[in-house]
């Protein structure tokens, strides 16, 4: 054993510097997308009680669905549940192209996932928590939202659709 500083082969030293630079570049690209372009991951919302979130008349998830806040701007309260059947409420949402929709999704029983195909909306739905992301739909078409976390036997049939009209 030696008390001298560690010996590093010049090739290996260069390689270490090079890989560090590559990782820094990746980290920069990620930061630019996150803080510059607003492609962010969900942040904590308020917590709810999963036992009553679907039934309490004061809870928007007792009446899940789309709300037009102002022209072209929507709030979508979506409830995911496995009981009595595996489904999202509502099963279908229709918005005009160019709309920006804020999704507030929660679960009244087990954990679910929520992924809207061909968009950046993809997050966990955890009982007791509210997941929120805002997505702008520019291109008309049908965008399925599917469950991406195992939630029991019906996990594979759990989905809904956003119809973006021209």
């Amino acid at each position: 054993m030696s008390a001298q500083p560690m010996h590093i082969h010049p090739y290996e030293r260069n390689w270490m510097v090079f890989s560090a630079v590559m990782l820094v570049l990746f980290a920069t690209a990620v930061s630019v997308a996150a803080f510059g372009m607003g492609i962010q991951v969900p942040a904590p919302e308020q917590r709810v009680d999963p036992r009553i979130v679907a039934t309490d008349p004061n809870s928007p998830w007792s009446n899940p669905g789309l709300r037009e806040v102002s022209p072209g701007k929507y709030d979508a309260y979506i409830l995911a549940h496995a009981i009595p059947v595996w489904e999202y409420l509502p099963k279908e949402i229709t918005v005009p192209a160019g709309s920006s929709v804020s999704f507030y999704v929660t679960s009244s029983d087990v954990q679910h996932g929520f992924k809207i195909q061909d968009t950046n909306a993809n997050f966990m739905v955890i009982p007791g928590q509210v997941s929120k992301l805002t997505i702008k739909f520019n291109k008309p078409g049908t965008y399925n939202y599917i469950c991406t976390e195992y939630c029991g036997s019906g996990h594979g049939i759990m989905y809904g659709a956003i119809i973006v009209t021209p």
Partner: peptide
């Protein structure tokens, strides 16, 4: 939807209460 909005002295929204939390 029943909601409250809290605005500070600089005219910035600081809190929203959009649904019943715990």
């Amino acid at each position: 939807d029943p909601s409250f909005v809290l605005v500070d002295g600089w005219g910035i929204v600081r809190a929203e209460y959009r649904y019943h939390a715990e």
